[in-house]
Design a protein around this nucleic acid. Structure first.
Lengths: 193, 193
DNA sequence: GTGCTACCATACGCATGAGTATGGTGCGAG
DNA sequence: CTCGCACCATACTCATGCGTATGGTAGCAC
């Protein structure tokens, strides 16, 4: 009972609190919205606090991105990794990618900030890992090396574009049923029989 | 010989000059880089000039976006529209979309600025038009309405994601030959036989 | 209980970029 | 030829947001 930390019963803050706060801001308003005064207000303190924990805003971004990359590396793909059949594994991956789109909102927000020098390398690593995962699965399905790489590239591009079109653009606002049908169409098209 | 306007023999400017200058900046450094003082420097004048032609920065953005939307509406898709066979039309469209990626650099830059209230509606219209074009072609190939819409969505998402991964992210830097092979793979996968 | 230190507030400086005020100049109409 | 307007320069104001300087308080060590 040292820590009965409910939402607003703030005690002293730690660097980690600022990092998750930054990630919250990123997912809700994008990387550009991570301003130290705004973030301080949201945490119930002032900037005087911030500059004790971090030397600069860039340092906060760096730490927040490292935290996200860490917890993301095994989250999405770790869930479906135990599935042995590669076709079933890919299908479940595709279905999950849409089902809880909330989980991908940070990735989408970071896609919008690829011009930022701190964001770019992180996204490069994460995207590469994900595409490697796809390529391995496609190889297990029976594709040769080149085919698997191309299909992984295509599938991942479709994923990235889908996030862009739905989360960032308002796009067609397809309802639940139509969305399910779309995912099944994607599965039928991008996963060989 | 009234107009021997070489690159740097500047005479007086018109609003159109500012608009194309803004589009240049967008394609090279993104929407956020459209600052009036920077743009004025690039045009060889000062901001005093700008505020004669436009009441505000937003007005310039609005005009530049309208100009782009106008000249884009029939540029990309108008080229391949005369092709009668729908399969061939789609294939040529896909091939062109990668061949001169320079043409799509503005679209990609605008994708990075979907949070901007002026950019969002423009991109919504342009993207919708393009997806409609795809859906019509897929219908002519023999797909039913739902299938065609889903496939159009998928193909366009792949296009958007591809732009994001190559132009914004540094992604795999595939050389010319490998890129051609990728496009052919996409054609084989997304265009039914 | 006293003092040190971790955490935070207050009040600055300073750079950037939008927008304003005002005065100057070249060019076409008359 | 001259005059007015279209176009532009100069010199400000003002808001935002990063970073700094410095002083205050709460809680644990001893």
């Amino acid at each position: 009972m040292l820590q009965a930390v409910e939402k607003f019963e703030r005690t002293r803050l730690s660097a980690a609190d600022w990092e998750v706060g930054a990630l919250d801001l990123i997912s809700s308003q994008g990387v550009a919205a991570v301003a130290v005064e705004a973030l301080a207000r949201q945490l119930g303190v002032t900037k005087g606090s911030f500059y004790w924990h971090f030397p600069t805003r860039e340092a906060l971004l760096k730490a927040a991105l490292e935290r996200w990359e860490q917890q993301d590396t095994d989250h999405v793909f770790g869930q479906v990794e135990p599935i042995t059949d590669p076709r079933e594994r890919l299908g479940e991956l595709f279905r999950r990618s849409g089902r809880e789109a909330r989980s991908h909102v940070i990735y989408s927000a970071l896609l919008q900030a690829l011009d930022h020098p701190l964001v770019q390398p992180v996204m490069e690593r994460v995207s590469q890992r994900r595409m490697d995962f796809l390529a391995r699965a496609y190889r297990q399905v029976g594709m040769d090396r080149r085919q698997a790489l191309h299909r992984a590239r295509l599938a991942y591009a479709a994923y990235v574009g889908f996030l862009q079109l739905t989360l960032q653009l308002g796009m067609p606002r397809l309802d639940h049923a139509e969305f399910e049908a779309y995912v099944e169409h994607v599965i039928a098209t991008l996963i060989p029989a």
